[in-house]
Design a protein around this nucleic acid. Structure first.
Length: 899
RNA sequence: GGGCGGUUAGCUCAGCGGUAGAGCGUCUCGUUUACACCGAGAGGGCCGGCGGUUCGAAUCCGUCACCGCCCACCA
């Protein structure tokens, strides 16, 4: 016996363990079935399950379960990401909290040991939470981006690309994060609008006492590294200064005034200071004009004079330089800014200070302003790798859903910059490059190979030192679709599961991850990594705000699971996920969809109480009763709708189709219709109906299983539809063909409308629900009367009717009337009815129908419409007009009868 | 500055050329033994504004407004 209420907390864990124990999640590489592959976007090993995870993993699990039920050999590849910076931060913070030595004093090897230890201890959090959500990942295949196999894949790719010249070292300006003291990639920089100032500074002109060139800057602290002033070649204001020199205040450097298109006469003062080592544009100007590039900020963004040599011939005022060094050396960049402004003000060179709103680059993880810094880093030539990726999407080898994201993908790849892949961190894949004593570089799979290459080059043994840096975390993620399958080994899995079928992920990592997997997949596998990229939105709070700790609007998926069950959360997510749309979630939403879980449970309880049980010998095609045929046909339709929706990643439509069929069709009508039949347990009709009910319940459980796996599995098992934990692999419902479905549908459709009409009239007339009244039909065709007769039992219960009979004569006093097709329903309600109200109601009806008729008539009188609209449309309108006119006539007759 | 998306019932959204819809919420009624996490019924919309195309526009085109996001030189 099913309990009165469903208790998810008690059920879910047991069922999940049942599935996992029985190997239900396992891919079957040896099977003959067509594979279906989804690669999990590896969550950070530091992470715990948040709503964004709940969204993406619910969708993926829904797809994988659905395909598994369709008989595909489903592989949902699990794993997690080492998340370089994030993990290193977590462990460093932990060391600090526990009062341990910091990373540097601990040393590299000891620190990395700590990280591994931490991973062993806490790294399993998210996989445990994924289990709570019901994710049917093939756990024994779980991978980690830093495990041996994946690390080998990383080295193989690095070495191959380096040998092809697609990975190289270069000294250039990079985005430097002073907090992490590491380079980061362009993607890890975010612009923040910032209220700052624009300072106007006068630079004295050499050999022209009292003459200045005025520059404008938001970053006076970088002026120490100025090596030129640029003006636009066509700017008449400065024409006579081009070719002359200014003397850089505070530094005493003689700097040229150059003409360069970069300078915009409209911006600032029209003259722009050039600091090649600390500004991306200035770097280009510096290159064009062959300028020196002294760095004046160090790795912690403190002022340094290391590259400003007093004996540099450009320094014409060494005393000024010495004074500045004394005042500024070692100051933090913002302290230096303040100090420099003070010094300029004192010298009378600070001409103006204007409030200024501008974009400032911040590190997305560190949250501190990025400093462009001139360093040597490893780069990947992404523009070469991007070309095949662009072409593949253009050809449709990979399709984005929704399609408009392809534009985003193209726009970024077509204009891609070199990808800075080295990071000055410790936690990550160490770059497989070794340096000889003279700085020669040996890129190799391992130290021995590097050593051999060095030996070949030098002719003797030399001491090599490995590059200290590690790779960008996204470098290993880019290989995920094949590295997880065992590549570069030639495994059966690589052959079978690559390329994957669909990648499900958020738009925020199209660049970080999707584009890079496309590039690496095409380059190393010669084939796209996935056929479809399903892009979903973000989870927001009920007001549409992004969830964030600072706003305090974060909803914890685990708390929702505790409270309402995983099925309720999953169904809510699916129901709210339109293609590419953000999901606005609130606890109230989940609570209301929890009702749906309960509804299903109660429907099953009702079935159980009425002896409904699966019958393996049942043949839907042999069902005789119209009720049975009707519900079987409706179940077919629901299954077709649900399948089509999943096929096109319309999760909301899938959820709605299941919801509607289960609640409105099955519970509200079918079960109600079935009650009188089931009340007579011994009849043949009842036996058939029980079989039908069992079958349709089975269809419902299977349709809902991908999104509500727990409660459906529990019911499946309790009813004995199959062995325990077998719903997960039960076949997805196929269309059955009940005979005469159309006739059955027409019949049930009439009965439903008939009951609804009566209910409406009774409600409007405020007839107490307890009161049963007779129902009469005027002008009804014999088959209509026969229908009423055949369905008299449900009509009695549901429409509170004592009888249904034809009535030709005079209207009984105090009757209400309603038109249904050719017939007029008459409800003798003497004692309840307010004749005035009934008159008003009928007049309203006449007006409504009359208005509609008039609209249609006017349309059909329009010669243009009749001539130009498709014949079928015109015909349909004619029929509609005829129907509505007949209704008007009957309504008027009904009015007339009332006098 | 460039690009993308959105604007339909109180809320969340579907519909994307031929009769404006759903869920939730609201209101009314209800102890009909599956379910009050329920049932029945009702009310609620110049489909953002303005033009255009069309026999016909929520739907196509143009334009404007507002909201959101992404990208882009910190003068």
């Amino acid at each position: 016996m099913l309990s009165k209420t469903y208790a998810p907390a008690e059920t879910e864990q047991r069922i999940y363990e049942g599935w996992e124990r029985s190997g239900a999640f396992a891919a079957r590489p040896e099977s003959a079935a067509a594979p279906f592959t989804i690669m999990i976007p590896p969550p950070n090993v530091t992470g715990s399950l948040h709503m964004g995870h709940a969204l993406t993993f619910t969708l993926q699990d829904t797809l994988i379960r659905w395909r598994r039920m369709q008989g595909r050999d489903a592989l949902w590849q699990p794993g997690s990401d080492h998340a370089g910076i994030a993990t290193q931060m977590v462990v460093e913070r932990l060391l600090a909290e526990q009062g341990n030595q910091d990373r540097r004093s601990l040393g590299r090897d000891a620190f990395i040991d700590r990280v591994w230890a931490w991973k062993a201890e806490s790294g399993g959090t998210i996989t445990r939470q994924l289990r709570r959500l019901g994710a049917s990942l093939d756990w024994p295949r779980e991978r980690f981006t830093m495990d041996d196999g994946l690390s080998a894949a990383v080295r193989t790719v690095f070495v191959a690309l380096a040998r092809e010249g697609l990975i190289y070292r270069d000294r250039r300006l990079v985005n430097w994060d002073p907090k992490f003291q590491s380079a980061i990639s362009d993607l890890e920089v975010e612009s923040r609008e910032t209220r700052g100032h624009l300072w106007h500074i006068d630079y004295p002109i050499e050999g022209a006492p009292g003459r200045f060139i005025r520059v404008a800057t938001t970053r006076p602290e970088t002026m120490l590294g100025d090596v030129a002033v640029a003006v636009h070649p066509d700017d008449a204001r400065f024409a006579d200064l081009v070719g002359r020199h200014a003397i850089l205040p505070l530094v005493g450097r003689r700097i040229p005034i150059v003409a360069d298109e970069y300078s915009d006469p409209e911006k600032g003062t029209g003259a722009v200071k050039i600091t090649p080592a600390h500004d991306f544009n200035d770097f280009e100007v510096g290159r064009r004009h062959g300028l020196a590039m002294p760095s004046v900020l160090d790795r912690e963004a403190r002022v340094t004079f290391a590259e400003l040599a007093a004996d540099d011939p450009a320094i014409v005022d060494p005393a000024a330089l010495a004074a500045s060094r004394a005042a500024l050396d070692g100051l933090d960049r913002y302290a230096a800014r303040k100090q420099i402004l003070a010094m300029l003000r004192e010298a009378g060179l600070l001409a103006d200070e204007v409030a200024h709103l501008h974009q400032v680059p911040y590190g997305d993880r560190s949250g501190v302003p990025i400093e462009p810094l001139l360093t040597t880093q490893w780069f990947c030539n992404a523009s070469v790798l991007a070309k095949p990726a662009i072409a593949a999407v253009e050809r449709g080898d990979t399709v984005f859903v929704p399609k408009q994201w392809e534009n985003t993908f193209f726009a970024w790849l077509r204009d891609i910059e070199p990808w800075c892949i080295s990071r000055q961190l410790w936690w990550g894949h160490r770059i497989p490059a070794w340096y000889g004593p003279d700085g020669a570089v040996f890129v190799a799979h391992d130290a021995a190979e590097a050593q051999a290459a060095a030996h070949a080059q030098y002719g003797h043994e030399v001491a090599l030192s490995q590059d200290e840096d590690v790779l960008d975390t996204w470098f290993s993620s880019a290989l995920w679709p094949f590295s997880t399958l065992g590549w570069p080994e030639k495994t059966a899995e690589v052959a079978r599961y690559y390329p994957g079928d669909v990648l499900v992920t958020g738009f925020d990592i199209i660049f970080f991850w999707v584009a890079r997997m496309m590039m690496m997949g095409l380059h190393f596998m010669g084939e796209v990594p996935f056929r479809t990229v399903c892009i979903h939105g973000l989870v927001r709070d009920e007001r549409g705000q992004k969830m964030s700790k600072s706003k305090g609007n974060v909803i914890d998926p685990l708390a929702l699971i505790e409270k309402f069950g995983a099925d309720a959360l999953r169904f809510t997510i699916a129901a709210l996920t339109g293609p590419g749309r953000d999901v606005k979630l609130s606890e109230a939403r989940v609570e209301s969809y929890r009702s749906f879980v309960t509804k299903l449970w109660n429907a099953a309880r009702f079935a159980e109480m009425n002896g409904v049980a699966p019958d393996p010998g049942f043949d839907p095609a042999s069902v005789r009763s119209p009720l049975g045929r009707w519900i079987l046909a409706a179940a077919n339709e629901a299954a077709a709708e649900a399948g089509a929706a999943l096929e096109s990643y319309r999760f909301n439509d899938y959820a709605a189709a299941c919801y509607r069929f289960t609640w409105n069709t099955f519970c509200d009508w079918f079960l109600e219709f079935a009650k009188p039949v089931l009340a007579q347990p011994e009849t043949e009709a009842a036996a058939e109906l029980r079989q039908v009910a069992a079958h349709v319940l089975g269809v419902i459980l299977r349709l809902l299983h991908p999104v509500m796996p727990f409660v459906t599995e529990e019911l499946w098992d309790r009813f004995g539809f199959g062995p325990d934990y077998s719903l997960i692999r039960a076949p997805w419902p196929e269309a059955m063909a009940p005979a005469d479905a159309a006739a059955a549908s027409a019949e049930l459709d009439w009965v439903i409308r008939f009951i609804t009409e009566i209910r409406t009239v009774r409600a409007e007339m405020n007839v107490p629900p307890g009161t049963m009244t007779p129902v009469h039909l005027r002008d009804a065709r014999p088959e209509t009367l026969a229908r009423a007769e055949a369905w008299i039992e449900p009509i009695r219960r549901m429409a509170r009717a004592t009888e249904v009979s034809a009535l030709a004569g005079a209207l009984p006093a105090g009757s209400a009337q309603a038109v249904l097709d050719e017939a007029t329903i008459i409800l003798p309600l003497a004692g309840f009815i307010d004749i005035e109200a009934e008159l008003a109601r009928l007049r309203r009806e006449v007006e409504r129908a009359g208005g509609e008729a008039e609209k249609l008539a006017r349309k059909l009188e329009n010669a243009d419409f009749v001539r130009r609209a498709p014949e079928a449309v015109v015909e349909e309108n004619r029929e509609r007009l005829a129907g509505i006119e007949a209704e008007v006539t009957r309504l008027q007759a009904a009015l007339a009868r009332l006098g």
